[in-house]
């Protein structure tokens, strides 16, 4: 085992670039996953069978197939029909869509958890469907699923290095390129591995704290 701090020093500037890209991917992916997940969850509750069934089938399919293959699909197949995207954009969309199928389940559980009385009260007050959802159901549903959503952000963080495989320069991507150029493998990859733990551990502590706080309501 020979650890060379000079290699670390040499790698650090690129590492920080990688951290930035990972954060961008995570932020973009989270935004897509949170909004699209809500869309799926509402569509799954639709009264129309031809909305409910396809959405159920599609989310089930996306959730049970590998993200890596989905990224390949987005990166190599989609440009044949439509626009070609940069690796990072592909990664953001891939992560977002994949995790939206998980957040959909989370939202669904949250909506199911809202007591029936709340629906009845909204009906009794003659609130329209839109207002019922916006001001009665969703605020209560989302509040109780915030920790679960946070868990998926951490999960997404840990899946984000997959975007390096399609060529995005996130933390792992930078480490791969650096290693290929300098033949120094130990330091960059170890550094990236530690970085993931260093980010994920406090994040999960934060979520646990959040869970305790919100549980009192």
């Amino acid at each position: 085992m020979n650890w060379d701090w000079e290699v670390v020093e040499e790698f650090l500037p690129r590492f920080w670039d990688g951290v930035l890209v990972t954060c961008q991917a995570l932020l973009g992916g989270t935004l897509i996953a949170f909004t699209l997940g809500l869309v799926w969850a509402l569509a799954q509750r639709s009264n129309l069978v031809w909305v409910r069934w396809p959405v159920n089938a599609v989310t089930e399919f996306i959730r049970n197939t590998p993200l890596l293959v989905q990224l390949f699909f987005l990166f190599y197949v989609v440009p044949e029909w439509g626009p070609s995207m940069s690796p990072l954009a592909t990664g953001v969309i891939g992560l977002g869509i994949h995790y939206s199928t998980y957040t959909a389940e989370v939202y669904r559980a949250g909506i199911d958890g809202v007591p029936r009385g709340q629906w009845e009260a909204a009906t009794a007050l003659n609130l329209s469907t839109a207002v019922t959802w916006r001001s009665v159901i969703l605020p209560q549903a989302i509040r109780r699923v915030v920790p679960a959503l946070g868990n998926y952000v951490v999960a997404m963080l840990k899946d984000s290095p997959m975007i390096a495989i399609i060529g995005a320069l996130d933390m792992l991507g930078e480490a791969r390129f650096f290693s290929a150029e300098t033949f120094q493998y130990v330091e960059p990859i170890t550094l990236v591995g530690i970085a993931f733990i260093v980010i994920a551990y406090p994040a999960s502590l934060l979520i646990r704290a959040l869970e305790r706080r919100l549980a009192t309501y």
């Binding site: 085992m1 840990k158 290095p161 792992l172 493998y185 130990v186 990859i189 994920a200």
Partner: peptide, 24 residues
């Protein structure tokens, strides 16, 4: 539990494949 839950499977795989042979 905390170490391996926080680690990314892909990064660990890369580490075992590229870094371990050199380190060990």
């Amino acid at each position: 539990f905390e170490l391996f839950r926080g680690a990314s499977a892909l990064v660990l795989m890369f580490w075992l494949f590229f870094a371990l042979p050199i380190a060990a």
